[in-house]
Amino acid sequence: MVTVGAETSSLRVREVTKSFRPPGNGAASRLALDSISLSIAAGELVAIIGPSGCGKSTLLRLIAGLDTPDSGEITIGFEQISGPSAERGLVFQDPNLFPWLTVRRNIEAGLVARGVLQEKRDEVQKFMELVGLDGFADAYPHHLSGGMAQRVALARALINHPKVLLLDEPLGALDAFTRMRMQDEVLHLWRGGRAERAVRVRPEIVSEKLLRLWQSRRTTMSLVTHDIDEAIYMSDRIMVMSPRPGRIEWTIPVELDRPRDRSSADFLRLRAEILEHLHFAGKSASGNNGS
């Protein structure tokens, strides 16, 4: 049962191509994603980094089902996706809270949309506490700071218990301090609201099965970000995308123990490695332009 649960929330993108026709007559359509393939294991947190316009957001919109690919397929578990659904949550850089609803009603929105508010009403309180907003239940979104608004957006997406949570630069608009605090909060939510200790049990003293249980309780997450530190701090794996047309250029596993120390030697080494890679790519591009 556990194994099934784990497998059904894995994500596979196979040879997906997507192009857009820019507005205006006769303009040639632009290839945004060129037969991109990737897979994310159940409970895994994968960061996708890359320059602006490399199709990261397009990829997330395709996985969310808001757009349809030109070719290729996207599966969650064994099921091919065919449109948006509550099993794939999406959080944008702009929290996009409904300004006409209070914080509580915004969080409830997903339950209302699925018509299950009556049965799940106590979860609303649980999620408000989880994101530390129980004092703001009746506030309207414009009274909230950027970080608080984004927490509401996360709670609103998580209350549906999505198999996959897609994060499109969710912390991009926050200041550096709020951002670091929110990174911990997102990790906290990723673990299903349990403390760090629960997942830091030494693997050699727990059974394989138990480990997988923890794994499956986590939400599969895909985090699009501009911030290399954020990617290293949070993710299990980092995928680097190249622009125009977007494809996965490089995948780096992040094998650091959590909670991660942003100033540890391993952290910095990994950071330098990624920077070097990106810098090298940039230098060769400018060199081509120059010659």
Partner: peptide, 18 residues
Amino acid sequence: TRASYLDVARTFGAKESY
């Protein structure tokens, strides 16, 4: 209506009436 509001609602399983 802001398209992103509709997109958000779709990602939590909203039907057309919602």
